[in-house]
Lab assay of single mutants.
Amino acid sequence: NITNLCPFDEVFNATRFASVYAWNRKRISNCVADYSVLYNLAPFFTFKCYGVSPTKLNDLCFTNVYADSFVIRGDEVRQIAPGQTGNIADYNYKLPDDFTGCVIAWNSNKLDSKVSGNYNYLYRLFRKSNLKPFERDISTEIYQAGNKPCNGVAGFNCYFPLRSYSFRPTYGVGHQPYRVVVLSFELLHAPATVCGPKKST
Rank of each mutant, 00 (worst) to 15 (best):
S29P: 08
N64E: 13
P7W: 06
V153E: 14
D9S: 11
C6M: 02
S116R: 12
I88R: 01
S164E: 13
H175A: 14
G196T: 11
W106V: 04
Y121E: 03
V153S: 15
R78A: 14
N151Q: 12
C61K: 10
P149G: 10
T170K: 11
A14L: 05
K148L: 12
G86R: 01
F44R: 15
V182M: 01
L38W: 06
V115I: 13
E135A: 07
S108Q: 06
K132R: 13
K114C: 10
Y39P: 09
L162T: 05
I142F: 09
I80V: 08
N120T: 15
W23Q: 04
P149V: 10
Y171S: 15
Q84W: 05
G196P: 13
Y143P: 06
K132G: 09
F134K: 04
L125G: 15
T55Y: 12
D75C: 08
S69K: 01
C158V: 04
V173S: 12
N64G: 09
T3A: 08
N1T: 09
S184M: 08
F47K: 07
Y91S: 05
L131A: 04
T55I: 10
F44I: 13
Q144V: 06
S69T: 09
D112H: 01
R179F: 04
A145L: 09
N40I: 05
L41D: 09
D137S: 02
K198M: 12
R78Y: 12
R25H: 04
S166I: 09
Q176C: 04
R124N: 04
V71L: 06
S164V: 08
D68A: 01
P43K: 11
P197G: 13
K199P: 12
Y93H: 01
S53T: 10
F126L: 10
G51V: 01
R124C: 04
T140K: 12
Y35W: 15
I104W: 10
G74D: 05
L187F: 11
I28M: 15
G83T: 05
N107D: 05
C158F: 03
V153T: 15
T46W: 10
Y121W: 06
F167I: 05
I88N: 03
P133R: 01
V103T: 01
V37I: 12
T85Q: 10
A22I: 02
L188E: 14
N118V: 06
T3V: 07
W23K: 02
T100Y: 14
Q176H: 06
V37Q: 13
N107K: 06
V52Y: 06
K148H: 12
T85C: 05
G152N: 13
S164I: 06
N40Y: 08
N130V: 15
A192V: 13
D34Q: 04
R16M: 09
F167N: 05
V71F: 01
F45H: 15
G152I: 05
L162S: 04
I80Q: 02
N107F: 03
D34G: 05
R124M: 03
F156M: 15
N24S: 14
N109R: 08
H175K: 14
N40A: 11
N107E: 06
L38N: 03
R136P: 02
D9V: 10
Y66A: 06
K198N: 15
P133K: 02
C6Q: 03
